[in-house]
Amino acid sequence: MAAVSVGIFGGAFDPPHVGHVELARVGTERFELDRLLVRVVEDPGHKEVSTSPQIRLFLAELAFAPLDEAEISLDPFPRTVDSLEALALDDPVFLLGADEFAALSSWKDPERVLALARLGVATRPGFARSRLDEVLAGLERPDRVTFFEIEPLPVSSSEIRSRVAQGQPIDGLVPPAVRAEIDRLELYRRVDRPEDGGMLRGEPTEGTTPT
């Protein structure tokens, strides 16, 4: 029986957008993955989140639904290396973007990450390859890194949250099902608070929790 090829794609997904889905889709094809574990990090160690893990999981399930290989679940570990240790998979491919790879030296135990998983790094036209080569040159196992190109999609979760807070449309930036739930649950809207000048609404109103 042929070995099952497993990929991992993790993130805060606050919210998941079309760039996330495209990276997952192309990465799945490029590495001929049988399974893609989409891991929604409960409490990211490197960034703040605006919504609960359950809501981000719900949105991720909607966003990645078109990918038959995708299996969405919560990841209780803030750091990638700890998550990989717990999963204990047989040489999986960890998918990530070029920006994340460029910051690899700031990760917890990056060499151990490379021992536990190969890295599939999505690049895009216009991204400075010299930044990636510099990181690659500092690794003990650069052979564990494979670059693949994806269509450039200028979108970020922070931009989407900002647009929603300002009442601007996000059509085309997130999958339609995700946009519909952001509207229905009133996520990322700015509510007035005199003491802090306003904040993002990151939880649904009473009676509108996802099912």
Rank of each mutant, 00 (worst) to 15 (best):
E134D: 06
D143K: 12
A122S: 15
E32K: 14
F31S: 02
L136S: 01
P76G: 03
L84Q: 06
S106P: 00
F9Q: 07
D82P: 04
A3H: 14
E100V: 15
V18T: 15
K108Y: 09
L187D: 09
S158P: 06
E22T: 08
G198H: 09
V178R: 07
L23T: 01
A2E: 13
V21I: 12
T123W: 04
G120Q: 14
D133N: 03
G120S: 10
E32Q: 15
L153R: 15
P125R: 03
L96F: 07
L67E: 04
L67T: 05
F58A: 15
D14P: 09
I182L: 01
I170N: 00
E29Q: 10
G172M: 04
G10N: 05
G172R: 03
E195H: 10
L132W: 05
V81H: 01
R190W: 10
P53D: 03
D99R: 07
A165V: 10
R163L: 03
Q54S: 01
A3D: 15
T209R: 13
E206Q: 11
P44Y: 05
S156V: 11
V4C: 10
G97R: 07
R25L: 00
A177G: 07
G97K: 08
L23P: 00
L132K: 09
G7K: 05
G198P: 11
D43T: 04
T211E: 04
F101P: 09
D143M: 02
D91C: 08
L59Y: 02
F94N: 15
D171S: 08
V178E: 13
V174P: 10
I8S: 08
V178G: 04
V21G: 14
A115N: 08
T51F: 01
L84N: 09
A63K: 00
Q168W: 09
G126R: 05
L36Y: 03
L95G: 12
F101Y: 15
G11S: 06
G138P: 03
F64S: 03
H46K: 11
S157R: 08
S157L: 08
I170Y: 00
A128E: 14
L104A: 09
G138K: 02
L74C: 02
G167K: 04
S157C: 06
E203S: 15
E100C: 15
G202Q: 10
G198D: 08
R124N: 04
R35Q: 13
R30M: 08
